[in-house]
Amino acid sequence: MLFRSFAAVAALLAVCTPVAAQDLDLRAQVAAFVQPTNEARTAVVVAQLRAAGFEPTVETFVGGTERSGPMEGRNVVVTLGEGAREILLTAHYDAVKLRDGTMSHGVVDNAASVVGVIEAAKILRGKALNHRIRVILFDQEELGLIGAKKWIEAHGLTNVAAVVNSDVAGYGDTMMYGQNNGAQSVAVTRAVQAVCSARALQCVGYPEYPPSDDRAFSAAGAPVVSLGFQDEVGAHQMWLAFNGGEANGLAEGFVPRVFRLIHSGEDTIEQVDPATVRLAGDSYAAVVEELDRRLSE
């Protein structure tokens, strides 16, 4: 019996250790984004993409706001495969500046999404797809979706078949998706729903979803969906806050946890669950594959 117990433990360790090691690595990758400037975060994006075997391109632009004045921004781009049309997989990597002048750690918003997108790119790299996949990690989202708008200005959307955006994917096992990106985005939403069903993934669709870089693409007429992750209770609380109206049942003045975290000093690595980052990467890759299949039919 004792030898059987040892054998069982050894077998369990053999199964669990690779996942545990991957989670430790994902946590370290997210934590690496805690930097004093967004320029330093650019360097982290480039380094992580190169470590994953990609050769990224850094596209600079003049951004900023009236308050900040002109600021150089940097979108980081990786292209996978070939095809006349392309599916964009996007997230922003910049963090917001807090009221005291320091940078938010910006891990829930939005380093965890960036690492999840890189994980998805690693999965997609080995797939035989009919579309070119362009991974774009945007700068200056926090200043008003500037990086996304500048990319659209520079490249146009003629060859863009669909856009999958990720924002806030640091914890929880419930995938949230926006349904408010126009009639042109219905097919993208249905692809997300198909993945949720096929994978038995808990998903919550929002008739009204908080804005991210998806809004730049929907305003320009592109088919797009924005995705994120949260715990189940938090996802439904946020749904009620945005879509429940006056009869939402939430306590007066209630603010969902995710909105207490982001854009604050509480957005720290302790809030991030690497299992969510791994789940996000798997799910985003599955959505892109489903879109590739549907758009090719």
Rank of each mutant, 00 (worst) to 15 (best):
E72I: 11
Y206F: 02
L24A: 15
A11T: 14
G126E: 11
V164E: 04
P274T: 03
T268I: 10
F33C: 04
N181P: 03
V204P: 01
D167V: 10
V44Y: 08
A91G: 04
A275C: 03
F242Y: 13
N159H: 15
A21C: 12
S185W: 07
T37E: 02
S104E: 09
R27W: 01
A161D: 09
L13I: 14
V135T: 05
N248H: 04
V108I: 12
N130T: 11
G281R: 12
D214R: 14
H263K: 09
I152F: 03
V258C: 09
T174W: 06
G228Q: 07
R27A: 11
R190K: 15
V233H: 11
A84Q: 15
S226Y: 01
T65F: 07
C196P: 08
G156K: 03
I133H: 02
L295N: 01
L24E: 00
T276N: 05
V225S: 07
I136K: 03
H236G: 02
P211A: 14
V163I: 03
T90E: 05
K150G: 06
T57R: 13
R190L: 12
D214H: 13
T174P: 05
L24Y: 11
I136D: 07
E153I: 06
E39S: 08
E266K: 12
A148T: 04
A112M: 06
D139Q: 03
E66I: 02
V19N: 08
H236P: 00
A191F: 00
G253A: 03
Y284D: 11
A84K: 15
L227R: 07
M71H: 06
L49T: 07
S166R: 10
K127T: 03
A128F: 08
S104H: 00
H236V: 10
D292M: 08
T65Y: 02
G245M: 01
V272Y: 09
G101S: 06
V164T: 02
P210L: 03
M1P: 14
D173T: 13
V114I: 10
A200H: 14
L13C: 15
A7L: 14
Q184H: 02
L143H: 09
A11I: 12
T276W: 11
P210Y: 07
L26D: 12
N180F: 06
V160Y: 04
D23E: 14
S264V: 13
A162Y: 06
Q230L: 15
G156A: 10
R199D: 15
R215I: 07
R132V: 07
E246N: 13
Q271Y: 00
A51T: 09
Q184E: 12
N130E: 10
G63K: 10
R294S: 12
L137Q: 07
E297C: 01
V58L: 05
F229M: 09
P256F: 05
T268Y: 02
A220V: 09
A111L: 05
G64D: 05
D273I: 09
A198L: 08
R293D: 10
A20H: 13
V233M: 06
G265Y: 00
S264Q: 04
R278W: 12
V78M: 10
N165D: 01
E82L: 01
T79V: 15
L137A: 10
Q140V: 07
L89P: 00
N165I: 09
E289H: 03
Q184C: 01
Q22L: 15
A32Q: 01
V163Q: 06
Q179S: 02
N243S: 05
A183D: 14
V225E: 08
E270C: 05
S212T: 11
R257T: 13
D282M: 13
A187F: 14
A112D: 05
G221A: 11
